[in-house]
Nucleic acid binder design. Sequence first.
DNA 1: TGGTTGGTCAACCACACGGTTGACATTCGA
DNA 2: TCGAATGTCAACCGTGTGGTTGACCAACCA
Lengths: 111, 111
Amino acid sequence: MFAALADPTRRDLVARLCDGDATLTELAEPYDMSIQAVAKHLAVLEAAGLVSRTRRGQTRPVHLEAQVFDLMGKWVERYRRQAEQRYRRLDTVLAEMPDEPESHDASKEQR
Amino acid sequence: MFAALADPTRRDLVARLCDGDATLTELAEPYDMSIQAVAKHLAVLEAAGLVSRTRRGQTRPVHLEAQVFDLMGKWVERYRRQAEQRYRRLDTVLAEMPDEPESHDASKEQR
DNA sequence: TGGTTGGTCAACCACACGGTTGACATTCGA
DNA sequence: TCGAATGTCAACCGTGTGGTTGACCAACCA
């Protein structure tokens, strides 16, 4: 999922798909790049579950799977919370720490 | 930033740094990988601003920059909201749509 | 039926990336 | 001062990835 979003072109595709489904040629039009290259990017996004495609006549509209944003939000939130907790722990440790006579050792303890 | 998190080893490093700062050798220990390889991963994380390093004697503790989680959260939230809005728009469009007489075309419209 | 349009498949190429090894710098401890 | 520990730098290597071109398939339209 992160790997799929690592490429700027792919992020741009995702951003544009937020405005609605689109076909391959529509998506490829603004880029200075072959259709096949864009098709490969879409394949990556599809493999990562960020996007789905349905057959409609001779065209294959690309649809953004919005749930992945919820997943990513969860992921980020988990780490954000964990890091925050650690900061709180550090704060209490620092608050409970007696005033060190020698600042030398104190700098070593603090981690 | 996404590119930095694309690698599973790097995500693992970030996860472990949530528990507190650590030195290069500490971080590299659990992996079946050379120290230098881990150092490269850390360099990538540092270039992406996910991590910072300070000199402390002969060791260089690695510190997780927690703000990036806020940034990522913002990013995800923006897209999540946008996609959601689009769904709402689509819903109103569907709601305002007159009942289709021929179920044949209707099945085509249904996406 | 034959063109045209929208996508796909396959082969290829250049380059970035994850990993290695080896040599070197710096700092602490004895 | 010497040795060991901690990191860094540089060169190299295999593979994956982003891109190209060319041929092809499938569906619509005239």
